[in-house]
């Protein structure tokens, strides 16, 4: 992504940083010209100290890799956090167009997922916070474990589609359960290409519901208690009470004109 010919790499040890650089730049370790910027001491990895090297590439070819100039290494940082929960873990990475998916491979006990994905959410949140702080400009970081997100995504997509079907069939607004920002994103992007409806988040706070609104139903008030039966009655009564109003105004005014 960067056109400069110098790239910084970080690892727990200098050897690890070199190996990382070699892999990212598609070169053999012996072919690299590098300079050590920082040497970690003992116990350094837990204190966030890392080996830092800067690599110069001879040819002008800009290597393609997803790290950026900030020197933040999401894989290493996530590994450090995950190892505090369970010492024997491995972080596998996988990239697509706009995401870098970091998978924590543990013992399959779901310890990194937690109830309703709470632990996974917390790990991802902290990792994103650190990434933000360290100036990460790369792809969106996704923390995954035991296909939890993948399964959850499939479930949410199915739910979005079935609510959309229902909204269109009944011509009524459908509302999801309380969802986190990432989950709402899945709903919205699933429905982006569906004709004849829009989706909108509803509420305040971290968790919100998503409304799925068929065309023509936008004007209606969101049913707060599902009280659809009232909607005619409510709309019909108001103008009448509104019409009564002016009468009171006219009476006091009338004497004035006679004066």
């Amino acid at each position: 992504m960067s056109d400069s010919q110098q790239h910084e790499f970080i690892g727990k040890t200098v050897e690890e940083a070199v190996a990382e650089a070699a892999a990212k730049l598609n070169l053999a370790p012996e072919e690299l010209h590098y300079e050590v910027l920082e040497q970690p001491g003992a116990f350094a990895s837990l204190l966030g100290k890392r080996a830092r090297i800067v690599v110069s590439t001879d040819n002008g070819d800009a290597p393609t890799f997803s790290a950026n100039d900030s020197g933040f290494d999401p894989t290493a940082t996530l590994g450090d956090i995950a190892r505090a929960i369970m010492p024997e873990v491995e972080i596998k990475t996988q990239e697509n167009e706009d995401e870098l998916i970091l998978e924590i491979v543990g013992d399959g006990s779901g310890v990194f997922i937690g109830r309703k994905g709470k632990t996974l959410e917390a790990i991802q949140f902290v990792l994103l916070r650190i990434a933000q702080k360290q100036g990460w400009q790369g792809k969106r970081l996704i923390v995954e474990s035991e296909q939890y997100r993948e399964r959850r995504q499939v479930r949410l997509q199915e739910r979005a589609m079935s609510l959309a079907d229902k909204a269109l069939a009944e011509r009524r607004i459908q509302t999801t359960e309380m969802l986190s920002a990432g989950e709402r994103r899945i709903i919205h992007s699933t429905l982006r290409d569906r004709q004849g409806l829009t989706s909108r988040s509803l509420g305040n706070g971290e968790l919100k519901r998503v409304q799925i609104i068929p065309e023509g139903a936008e004007q209606r008030r969101p049913p707060r208690d599902g009280g659809n039966r009232n909607e005619r009655g409510r709309g019909g009564n108001r103008p009448r009470s509104g019409n009564r109003g002016p009468r009171r105004d006219q009476q006091p005014r009338a004497p004035r004109f006679e004066d």
């Binding site: 956090i81 505090a84 929960i85 310890v111 990194f112 937690g114 709470k118 632990t119 959410e121 917390a122 790990i123 949140f125 902290v126 916070r129 706070g205 971290e206």
Partner: peptide, 14 residues
């Protein structure tokens, strides 16, 4: 809203 603190507590309890 205490979100970072809460996330750290969740990781700690894991």
């Amino acid at each position: 809203n205490g979100r970072t603190a809460r996330a750290m507590r969740t990781i700690l309890s894991a």
